[in-house]
Design a protein around this nucleic acid. Structure first.
Length: 285
DNA sequence: AAATCGAGCAACCGCACGCTG
DNA sequence: CCAGCGTGCGGTTGCTCGATT
């Protein structure tokens, strides 16, 4: 469409965020909530692109983000979801409410891809889905990937959304409830020696504020996460799959597919369809 | 101790999509 | 219906740091 850049190239700061910038962003969002990113740079005085602000928030400052090592379970979940959904990191991230799509993407590219390739050399991962690899290839190239795997995705979404909400009953999802996390986050900065390397996790960045609430007002992967995490909440937001089931009935309905799904998701010993996987890996890069 | 290399990760870029007037 | 705008998403880049030589 030939859209103009989202922000002026001149006078826009790039590179790592400083603690001061983070503080300004968090303070602003604390007050106004996320959203209307266009207004954030002007209202905060940050010399940053609105996109940069959003990214910083969703990938780093947003409360409820867990950083650091991925657990075995998370790892397996990512592997299987990647097999199911492809490189749709935002969708995958929606099943891992405490992880960001960027984090998952990085983890996949740096760890899992290699790990899987190594594993494939020695034999065995599986590729469960209803479409053949040829169909998938065709679907992808024609932009009909979504519809092709819809059945699998629907099943996975239903089961997982319920499962996740059962595992972790969400706190009342108000933005205010997340301000504690932000405060802790900021305290972490102050304690952790803010100076070196801006917000870099490597150089004394904020301590992970992983433990609790996610916000209802945040967007993107955050909101997707919230849909999952709060799907059993009485006040859960309507989202694409949050309303499939509710209450005890939903619990019973959802548990059955989850048991199947769980065994699939967490079972890496099923050694079939390696070829499909290789095909997909080849397509991915 | 210095130089080089590779891995990991934060951030940027640009396209796509959805909403709104 | 269409164009403009804001936002979301995935791919890619480049910086930093630890390991190795």
């Amino acid at each position: 469409m030939g859209r103009p850049p989202c922000c002026d190239k001149d006078g826009v700061k790039k590179g790592p965020w400083t603690p001061e910038e983070d503080l300004a962003l968090v303070s602003y969002i604390q007050e106004h909530g996320p959203g209307n990113w266009r207004a954030v740079p002007t209202n905060t005085g940050l010399m940053r692109c609105s996109k940069s602000c959003r990214l910083r928030w969703t990938n780093y400052l947003r409360p409820g983000i867990k950083r650091g090592n991925f657990t075995d379970q998370e790892e397996k979940l990512i592997i299987h979801l990647q097999a199911l959904l492809g490189n749709r990191w935002a969708a995958i991230a929606s099943y891992l409410p405490e992880r960001t799509d960027n984090d998952i993407k990085n983890y996949w590219n740096t760890h899992l891809k290699k790990k899987l390739l190594r594993k494939l050399e020695t034999g065995g991962t599986h590729w469960p889905r209803s479409c053949s690899s040829e169909q998938l290839r065709s679907c992808r190239s024609k932009g009909r990937w979504e519809s092709c795997i819809q059945a699998d995705v629907d099943m996975a979404k239903r089961a997982l959304s319920e499962a996740l909400s059962l595992e972790k009953p969400p706190p009342p999802s108000t933005y205010a409830s997340s301000t504690e996390n932000i405060s802790r986050l900021l305290e972490g900065w102050m304690r952790g020696g803010v100076g070196g390397g801006g917000g870099s996790a490597r150089s004394g960045g904020p301590a992970p504020a992983a433990s609790s609430a996610s916000t209802t007002t945040s967007q993107g992967s955050a909101s997707a996460s919230n849909c999952v995490a709060s799907s059993s909440s009485p006040e859960r937001p309507a989202c694409e799959f949050g309303d499939y089931y509710s209450g005890q009935e939903g619990l019973e309905i959802a548990q059955a597919p989850f048991l199947m799904l769980e065994s699939w998701l967490l079972d890496e010993n099923v050694g079939e369809e390696d070829e499909n996987f290789l095909n997909m890996m080849a397509m991915d890069g």
